[in-house]
Write a protein that binds this DNA or RNA. Structure first.
Lengths: 227, 227
DNA sequence: TCAAAAGTGTTAATAGTACACCCATGA
DNA sequence: TCATGGGTGTACTATTAACACTTTTGA
């Protein structure tokens, strides 16, 4: 049906995925970055990435690459943008699809991360990155902020059960601005898909704070603009 | 520096671009689609696409492909999403980056469009498309709507000078809902970057309607969420 | 008893929505 | 003179933003 020549007169390129892995700890967003002890660009900082293999979708490649580093398989992930400048990788031509992932920072596999010479770096302290990885981070952060403003993706950065103070600190970190506690809690109260578990966290205060969880069944996308 | 083996053990794929080309006429959004008189999938409907060539960025490939069909070089274009399922093209593996373009439908080159056996099709009447092109159209429409809700990209579908009635009809077509004339004009009046030219359009009414233009200098992105 | 975090309502400002008539013109 | 599309303002509703004190409890 499709004549071989239709395809074969055109070039082929390596296709890679690069992953912007967000975590949240101590009131700060952080990124999981590699201090590369391998070529190319040994000694420099980069995102975790990898090549798309035969028979593997780009989405699957991104999940594989993130699991390889963190040991985590069911993360919230989203495609951000594709970077296709011919000289973006000085070695060979590589078209790269960027994805972001949200990780509960308590859960990643420390041995794997150490084995990859990877480190959690607070967002304001992110060092210069190789190639166009710095741009990827900017784009991913902007896109993640947007998504967090229209749907509760941020919750993927917290444990299953969380206090409202934790949730507010998270949103303040995501949007880089402090919020009014009463208005914030009023807004959360109007979201029936964020529900009290009945349990209480006593680690942060004598009094204890109610624990909440996200109920995905009660959550149905209402936004017109699903992106 | 980068050992050749680092790259060469990984597969290469064809990379293509597919373009969702929006136009606006008679109060309706329309798409420029190919009725394919070439393989593969001869006889079926598809988006205009093409392979990314050596030394060419994906963005440049998208512009080239759209110019090839329409003769237009300075269109508003935006990357939408990348489609990387291994079997999305039944012929060979092709990773495709989708872009949308906005065209003033009065300006395209009719000879080129005819030569490609392409047609403007009103959105509600878009036929089934090959491969995953139907999904691409849905995603592009959703994304274009989102962008139109946060910045005045829609204006690229109109001539340089337009009446407020034209502008309202356009927005009604984009969002698929009718709008109140007074509220609409109030909103436009608050946008200082949409300015009266002083000229009058007499083609649609005896009285004549004031013509407006978009002033890009007065327009500065104020949105936090630049996507 | 006190330090430290959790929890709780009201008011003002702003933005958004609903709604109907007069105007200018050429045929 | 009349048919046609162009143009205009006000009142109501909903949403968002500002703001400070009381509660609980273990040390």
């Amino acid at each position: 049906m499709a004549p071989k020549a239709y395809y074969s007169i055109h070039p082929k390129f390596h296709v890679s995925v690069d992953c912007i892995i967000f975590g949240f700890e101590d009131g700060e967003l952080s990124l999981l970055l590699l201090k590369r002890n391998f070529e190319p660009a040994r000694g420099q900082w980069s995102l975790m990435g990898g090549f798309v293999e035969e028979g593997e979708s780009t989405d699957a490649a991104a999940r594989r690459v993130v699991a390889e580093l963190t040991g985590l398989n069911d993360l919230y992930m989203s495609q951000v943008h594709t970077y296709g400048a011919p000289d973006r990788d000085p070695g060979e031509r590589v078209v790269s699809v960027a994805y972001y992932a949200l990780v509960d920072i308590k859960k990643y596999n420390r041995e794997l991360v150490d084995a990859h010479n990877a480190f959690w770096v607070n967002l304001p302290e992110v060092p210069p990155l190789i190639f166009d990885h710095g741009t990827m981070v900017e784009d991913a952060l902007r896109f993640m902020r947007y998504q967090a403003s229209v749907k509760p993706v941020g919750i993927n950065l917290l444990p299953e059960e969380f206090t409202l103070t934790q949730l507010q600190t998270l949103y303040e970190a995501i949007f880089g601005q402090s919020m009014d506690k009463r208005n914030f809690r009023k807004r959360i109260a109007s979201m029936d898909y964020i529900e009290k578990t009945g349990r209480v966290d006593k680690t942060m205060s004598r009094r204890g704070a109610a624990l909440y969880r996200f109920n995905p069944d009660k959550y149905h996308e209402q936004s017109i603009f699903k992106i």
